[in-house]
């Protein structure tokens, strides 16, 4: 039986704003399947976003949804999570939103290891504003503000998340859909800050400027240039040059922020021994 997406999509809110060939719809469906698999009730989940194409996703889904200011989804989500630590709080963001204007919030949410599932849709460009280079636009590639080729070095989002202290880090692509479902499920299940980068295609503002003949070409690029981390780690560097690893890239056990905070609250509220 085919999956019933209608049970999660808000009536009358489609069609979405994304361009033909955009892969965000693929990720959207994967996210719905993952949450459905985990049987999280609609009332118990909040999806928070900032600004950009990815940030319009929450409007379509029948959860508690919050579309905030550019780069600031994580602070708003932190306020929600610390207020309701037993609820599932997720953030959906883009490469520019999460790592440029929101970079400071991103690293500090990772450092706190607060239990927020953060999904970063990396399409290598600022799509909504028409194709300006982002912190992940490959060096040498064209963008509307890099007409002679990008000279701006990149962030590797999983490395950034790991270095900043996130306790679960993964990467998927819009091409590898069954694997993506599993990654989103694991990211949500993980207690602590989980960061999942999902490689996406923006044919309108990135692909057409950078010699991708079609949206399909960009999907095939994901297929040809990615390797599961298990395979990636076994190959010598010359065989992995130019390719990126996918899967669960890093995880560790670490104290979660709300747990630590409320344990402190419990400790200081306990009447002191030996006193009336």
């Amino acid at each position: 039986m085919s999956f019933n997406y209608d049970q999660y999509i808000r009536g009358g809110k489609l069609p979405h704003i994304w361009c033909p060939g955009c892969t965000y719809g693929i990720v959207f469906k994967s996210l719905l399947r993952a949450v459905d698999f985990l049987k999280i009730q609609k009332d118990d989940i909040a999806l928070v976003s900032g600004i950009g194409c990815a940030s319009r996703l929450p409007g379509y889904v029948d959860w508690n949804t919050l579309h905030t200011t550019h780069g600031r989804a994580l602070p708003f989500a932190t306020g929600l999570k610390l207020s309701c630590p037993d609820k599932k709080v997720m953030v959906i963001s883009g490469d520019g939103d999460a790592t440029a204007i929101g970079g400071n919030h991103f690293i500090h949410a990772c450092r706190r290891n607060i239990d927020i599932t953060t999904i970063v849709l990396n399409n290598f460009i600022y799509g909504m504003t028409g194709g300006q280079h982002s912190p992940t636009t490959p060096v040498g590639h064209l963008a509307s503000t890099m007409p002679y080729g990008n000279v701006d070095p990149n962030f590797n989002i999983p490395d950034l998340a790991k270095g900043a202290g996130a306790s679960w880090v993964g990467r998927g692509t819009a091409y590898h859909v069954p694997a993506l479902d599993k990654l989103i499920i694991e990211a949500i299940q993980h207690k602590g800050m989980s960061v999942l980068e999902i490689i996406n295609a923006c044919p309108t503002t990135y692909g057409r400027r950078n010699k991708f003949k079609s949206a399909t070409d960009q999907l095939l690029w994901m297929k040809d240039n990615s390797l599961p981390i298990t395979a990636f780690d076994k190959l010598p560097p010359e065989k992995t040059a130019g390719k990126f690893p996918t899967g669960v890239l890093f995880k560790k056990e670490a104290p979660e922020y709300c747990d630590t905070y409320y344990a402190m609250v419990e400790r200081v509220r306990k009447p002191k021994e030996g006193r009336a």
Binding site: L66, T69, L74, P75, G79
Partner: peptide, 14 residues
Amino acid sequence: IAAMGAVIGASLAG
């Protein structure tokens, strides 16, 4: 900036 965002998030949680 983050402090203001967190305050709004908490208020939305009641």
